[in-house]
Design a protein around this nucleic acid. Structure first.
Length: 375
DNA sequence: CCCCCCCC
């Protein structure tokens, strides 16, 4: 049985095979020979509303630049922005990139001109499963294979769910500049939402979460509507991040994961381990973030003061001791009120406090990123 | 693209 009959057989007899073959020939003509019979047959099947002819036609790992026209089914793993460029003939071209994957691997799709509209109008999203027909060619940039989706390409949503083998990262391996970051971790902290004005004058929203896995913890920044994905989450939930990107924070010089337009944060069933690691007090040096575990060994007064910007704030000082030493801890903002609940000898854990050379000696600052638990 | 780590 030839390939065309094979595709015809999937149509369930909605038209005759002769009619089908006639339409296939027409399709080849329409495309001025830009697609072969098999691709034309699949396109005709698509036109007839039968979309599963492309199922299993090829797996991503088998796609090479020599193959030319390909049809396959894959899941969107990342959506990158659209760029404009000037063609030699003076017209403006557009090019967008979408990454997709199946259970065998992942590949980049290059969408040309009108085909890039699905990116700009937001109709393609991470997690969408698509039937894709395009033209495989060598990616001159990376040396890998890329699928060009031009005038005759197809990208159609399908109900099939594709299992994807996605690369998952460990927190300790996240480096500045990385993209397509997927991590699972435990939700350790959730900040307030901050409103701000963007450079273009529009209002923006931003917030942070902290997640940890068995290799470490990392601050995550959520932008604009991604802020809303935290509303259904609770501390200690196992969460996953899909398609984040990493940037060094100018202030802290720490690498953070950003979740922008095309990133996802959601609950996961994955098993995640996180264990806080505590530093012996004697090992603390200035300029780092630390967690300590010990007991209260001194209590100061609660004070209110006015900051340089005129707003008022509270601070109290306590001392914490462990087997190795004793340190002063300044409790800022709401943490300051804790001083009234504490007694000498109260067991205490202070997570993520910042060390600096203080008034007397090295001290810790417990600010809005610090968590304090009393046993 | 945002915000921090401020007191005596």
């Amino acid at each position: 049985m030839d390939e065309i009959t094979e595709i015809y057989n999937k149509l369930g007899g909605i038209i005759s095979e002769d009619d089908f073959r006639k339409r296939v020939d027409e399709k080849v003509d329409q495309m001025s020979g830009l697609c072969d019979m098999k691709t034309a047959a699949m396109l005709v099947a698509h036109d007839l509303g039968v979309t599963d002819t492309v199922k299993d036609i090829i797996k991503i790992k088998d796609i090479t630049a020599e193959i030319g026209n390909v049809s396959f089914v894959a899941k969107v793993t990342s959506v990158l922005d659209v760029r404009e460029f000037n063609r030699n003939d003076g017209t403006i071209g557009r090019v967008g990139t979408v990454k997709v994957a199946d259970e065998t691997g992942s590949i980049k799709l290059t969408l040309w001109d009108d085909r890039a509209d699905i990116i700009t109008n937001g109709s393609v999203d991470v997690g969408d499963c698509l039937e894709i027909t395009g033209y495989a060619k060598e990616d001159s940039y990376s040396g890998g294979t890329v699928i060009n989706i031009g005038k005759y390409g197809l990208m159609r949503e399908t109900d099939q769910n594709i299992e994807v083998r996605m690369q998952s990262h460990k927190i300790a391996d996240i480096k500045d500049g990385m993209s397509d970051i997927n991590i699972s971790g435990k939700l350790l902290d959730i900040s307030d939402v901050r409103n701000f004005q963007k450079k273009d004058g529009n209002p923006g929203r931003v917030m942070n979460i902290l997640i940890g896995d068995e290799t470490g913890k990392i601050r995550v920044t959520l932008w604009d509507e991604k802020v809303d994905s935290t509303t259904s989450l609770n501390l200690d939930d196992a969460v996953e991040i899909i398609n984040g990107y990493a940037r060094t924070n100018n202030f802290s010089q720490q690498v953070e994961v950003q979740i922008g337009n095309h990133g996802v944060l959601r609950k996961t069933e994955a098993n995640v381990e996180y264990k806080e690691s505590f530093t012996p007090i004697t090992d603390i040096i200035p300029g780092e973030s630390y967690s300590i575990k010990g007991f209260v060994s001194g209590l100061g007064e609660l004070r209110e003061f006015e900051k340089d910007d005129g707003t008022s704030n509270m601070v109290s000082n306590i001392y914490v001791s462990d087997d190795t030493g004793r340190i002063r801890v300044a409790l800022w903002g709401d943490h300051a009120l804790l001083v009234d609940e504490l007694d000498i000898e109260t067991p205490i854990e202070i997570i993520d406090a910042y060390s600096k050379s203080g008034y007397e000696d090295i001290e810790l600052s417990a600010g809005n990123r610090t968590r304090i638990t009393i046993k």
